[in-house]
Simulated assay, not measured.
Amino acid sequence: MIVRTLEEVIGTENEVKADNWVSRRLLLKDDNMGFSYHDTIIYAGTETHIWYKNHLEAVYCVAGEGEIETISDGKVYPIKDGTMYALDKNDEHYLRATKDMRMICVFNPPLTGRETHDEEGVYPLVED
């Protein structure tokens, strides 16, 4: 059994920071669960371009407010506490926070833990 607390992750290498967000990575590829699990804060007043070409992601907002805009069709979806969205087609999008948003994220395939977005908003696919 794997048991971890958020407090155990904060301040370690599994807390990855960027200008627009901080991701606390609770389960990673090495945990052999087939997915990774993250507690992420998206900072208010930011816009992040994201395009997970190599991963599927499901996100559940547990606090805050913002929106997601899919680039292919320009649709804008509001996000607030209790909203889930799934990028089931590797959807390229903008993620905007009007208030700090706390998001619970699941990635398949799982992340290794050190990934950050490249210039296209992509996380690299790390092969064994």
Rank of each mutant, 00 (worst) to 15 (best):
Y77S: 13
E47W: 04
T40Q: 08
L95G: 10
V76C: 07
Y94M: 15
H117K: 14
H38V: 14
S72W: 12
I41C: 08
T46D: 03
M101G: 06
E8L: 00
E65N: 07
K75Y: 08
D30L: 05
V22R: 09
P124A: 00
D81V: 14
R25V: 04
Y123G: 01
D128Q: 04
V22D: 02
S36V: 03
G45Y: 02
M103G: 08
Y43P: 10
N108H: 12
I71D: 06
G45P: 04
M84V: 15
T98S: 14
A86Q: 11
S36M: 05
G82Y: 09
G66R: 01
W21F: 15
T48Y: 03
T70V: 15
N54E: 08
D118L: 05
V59S: 10
N32A: 04
E7S: 01
E15M: 03
G45C: 09
V9Q: 00
T5E: 00
I71S: 11
P78W: 14
T48W: 04
G64S: 03
N54G: 10
T98Y: 11
M103C: 15
D118W: 03
D81A: 15
I79D: 03
V62Q: 07
G121I: 13
D30I: 05
I68Q: 02
G34H: 00
M33Q: 14
D81Q: 14
Y94G: 14
E115A: 04
K53H: 10
A44N: 08
M103W: 07
E127F: 00
Y37E: 03
S72G: 06
E13W: 00
I68H: 06
F35Q: 08
S36K: 02
H117Q: 12
D100C: 14
D91M: 15
D19Q: 13
T98G: 13
D91Q: 15
L56C: 14
L95F: 13
I41S: 06
I71N: 10
V126R: 00
T116H: 02
E67P: 06
L27F: 07
G74H: 10
E65V: 07
H55M: 13
N54F: 10
E120L: 15
N108Q: 13
